[in-house]
């Protein structure tokens, strides 16, 4: 049920930002730390260290945040009503996965205005795998009346390490959900601020120009020489920080896992841009993915040797 105390322009079914705020309120109430987006370009909310790194190690963790996600290849110059090269994911990570996580998720749908007596919500098998992160889990796509609105995953492995304990991850596609609850056919028509008339700001007002510009950039102009160079730089910087971060030769404790992981994120995004420019052949593609995975694995190993990764300071 939508909070009846909300004024109309704050309602999750009337306003894009209202939807985000409703999810924040819901998950904050369930004990999550509500974080802000990670300040780097990533392909999905999972890349945020609050998920990738925090999913590793024995310590409990509950977080929720919005993550702007960039998928250069999905750009359509603002012409497609559903596809964007930049969009928002709402990400929730709960470690260990609580009993009744499905019920919690369904309650969150109610909170944003999806009436479970009217809509057909289904959990349809979808095994999640991220080759670049060396991660996989089992779970579902969550369908609402035939539309995929979220991903629900029990992480089994991240960065090549078994998750112990297992974390539950929920990823909501915010634009899709908002289009659904607002009853809008075109993403650019979404009401962003919930106001009407002159005060109304749409998603298109905020992002259409960016979609056009970035599509041009991603497909036609992104400087591939620079990007190849950036990939190499990020890769070697990550290796350097990983090496320098070990406290001593015993490699029992690491002191710089997160800066190293930033470089891994950077390499991954640069690879996505190169891929969108079509300059990476099928066979090379595999080897780039492998290189990023190797970085992710090494960062995971380093993280596990930090305090937040479960190795307390002596």
């Amino acid at each position: 049920m939508i909070d009846p105390a909300l004024p109309p322009h704050m309602r999750p079914d009337k306003s894009f930002q209202g939807l985000i705020l409703a999810l924040h309120a819901f998950w904050a109430d369930k004990g999550c730390v509500v974080l802000q987006p990670y300040d780097m370009e990533v392909g999905a909310g999972t890349f945020h260290p609050a998920t990738t790194l925090r999913a590793l190690g024995p310590l409990p963790w509950k977080a929720a945040y919005v993550q702007p996600s960039r998928r250069p290849k999905d750009g359509r110059y603002g012409k497609n009503p559903n596809r964007l090269q930049h969009y928002y994911q709402y990400q929730v990570i709960l470690k260990p996965s609580p009993a009744g996580l499905q019920d919690l998720y369904l309650a969150s749908l109610s909170a944003i205005g999806i009436d479970l007596n009217l809509h057909d919500v289904r959990f349809v098998e979808d095994d999640w795998e991220s080759p670049t992160l060396g991660a996989w889990g089992l779970g579902w796509e969550c369908w609402c009346d035939g539309m995929e609105v979220s991903q629900f995953t029990y992480f089994q492995q991240v960065a090549g390490f078994e998750c112990a304990p297992v974390a539950g991850e929920l990823t909501y596609g915010l634009e899709r959900l908002a289009m659904y609850v607002q009853g809008v056919e075109n993403v650019y028509d979404l009401n962003f601020n919930g106001r009407e008339g002159d005060e109304k700001v749409t998603y298109g007002d905020v992002f259409l120009q960016a979609e056009e510009e970035y599509s041009r950039h991603n497909f036609e102009h992104a400087d591939t020489d620079m990007l190849f160079e950036q990939f190499r730089m990020a890769e070697s910087a990550a290796a350097k920080y990983l090496e320098a971060g070990w406290e001593d030769a015993s490699k029992a404790r690491h002191l710089m896992a997160q800066p190293a992981y930033d470089q891994c994120i950077k390499a991954s995004h640069v690879f996505n841009l190169l891929d969108a420019r079509g300059v990476i052949s099928v066979t090379e593609r595999q080897s780039y993915i492998l290189r990023v995975r190797e970085l992710a694995k090494a960062c995971g190993a380093a993280w596990l040797a930090t305090a937040a990764g479960g190795t307390p300071a002596p």
Partner: peptide, 25 residues
């Protein structure tokens, strides 16, 4: 033809409308 898992309180009108939207897209 769609098969839902719910006998909805509106007789399925919202479910049909939702599926039609997705299929249209």
């Amino acid at each position: 033809i769609l098969v839902s898992n719910l006998a909805a309180s509106d007789g399925g009108a919202a479910i049909i409308a939702g599926n039609e939207r997705v299929i249209r897209a």
